[in-house]
């Protein structure tokens, strides 16, 4: 659900209603909401007069979009060639097993979402894991689990966000 009913309108105006910027608009919605809420996409389709089926096609074609809320933290695991050769598949397997999460999914306690990506272009640091924008280099299955276990739990971070909103 959209928390701010005016959000889509604001974003559409930001790009002067240019249909060509549809993907950028969707990225902005996701940046605000953490995912693409269905009502947001409906609203976007109406405002831009672009069929909802096309908006949905875009949302499911591009791998950076998410149709369900993610976790409190964003974990990206690089599966580029170098990271792959240096053991990224083992890290992925270990993390999935330890936190009972599917690649591309979110842990049941909403602690983090795990997104394997093609290549973050930081091959000199392989294997690489990115947590909330912070790069970790030379990651091993054990070090990845350690970093993720130390993440502040979901409730805390929602509280922080809520407080910021009030302020």
């Amino acid at each position: 659900m959209l928390e701010n009913p005016k959000l889509v309108e604001q974003i559409v105006d930001r790009y002067s209603r240019d249909e060509g910027m549809l993907i950028s608009m969707m990225q902005d919605i996701q940046a605000e909401c953490g995912y693409l809420p269905a009502d947001g996409l409906r609203c976007l389709s109406k405002r831009l007069q672009v069929p909802l089926s096309r908006v949905y096609a875009i949302a499911t074609f591009y791998s950076s979009f998410r149709l369900a809320p993610g976790g409190a933290h964003e974990v990206t695991l690089c599966m580029g060639t170098v990271c792959y050769l240096k053991g990224a598949p083992d890290i992925l397997e270990a993390v999935c097993k330890e936190f009972r999460v599917e690649p591309g999914g979110t842990t049941s306690d909403r602690l983090f979402s795990l997104q394997p990506v093609n290549c973050v272009g930081a091959c000199a640091l392989a294997p690489v894991m990115v947590v909330d924008g912070k790069y970790y280099d030379g990651v091993t299955p054990a070090s990845a689990i350690e970093v993720l276990s130390d993440l502040p739990p979901a409730e805390e971070s929602t509280e922080v966000i809520a407080k910021e909103d009030v302020a």
């Binding site: 993907i23 950028s24 074609f61 591009y62 950076s64 979009f65």
Partner: peptide
């Protein structure tokens, strides 16, 4: 500037 959506 346009940002890609994650598709090779």
């Amino acid at each position: 500037i346009n940002r890609g959506g994650g598709a090779f």
